[in-house]
Design a protein around this nucleic acid. Sequence first.
DNA 1: GCGACAG
DNA 2: ATCTTGTCGC
Length: 233
Amino acid sequence: MTIIGIPQGWPADERTALAVQEDLRGRLELGEPGPGVGEGNVTGVDVAYDDERDLVAAAAVVLDARTLDVVAEATAVGRVSFPYVPGLLAFREVPTVLAALGRLTADPGLLVCDGYGLAHPRRFGLASHLGVLTGLPSIGVAKNPFTFGYEQPGEQRGEFSALVAEGETVGRALRTRAGVKPVFVSVGHRVSLERACAHTLHLTPRYRLPETTRRADALCRRALGEALTAQSG
DNA sequence: GCGACAG
DNA sequence: ATCTTGTCGC
């Protein structure tokens, strides 16, 4: 197994990361509708950590958007490239995720990330970074509301409310299962919020979280486990 | 000023 | 994210 290194020039401190983030944000494309629901491929990405051994495993799982069948999958294991700092999560996950995406043999299509896009202190979260860096349309589907405010959406699947920050709508609290805690959807790159939510509903025929992130989550945990076994025990 | 804060 | 048993339910 190969453990990928941290890329040359990758930010090592908060100040540099903030500057890089601001630069990437200048390349963000908003307002485009993005691919239609059920069209082409849709790819879930996620990572798992072992802080003890300073390892991070990433997984990318490509699904046929129409059938939700797995079309391709890839993993990568790397060194943790940045400490966890709220607002700078992307700098911790991006290098290894890009390595996994690079190993895919199928067109990723739309990227579905475990975290935020526009719903971010500086309106540029993990999904935005991955979208801009790959050029792919991307959305963020998070499990928690972070620091944002929202009204409880209606109890039925498909109902939603605005995620608000500084009086501005940055995403939606979307109910994917009746009576279950909503997920928090925001735009990453080249996809409208309306369509991001439609994709999310299409990807949640059975569970609260999208099939993409469920599959990527399971795969990156498995990859991390295998990496630890391979390392020693 | 201090704490909380996606994963 | 991760530390973690049993348990309820499909």
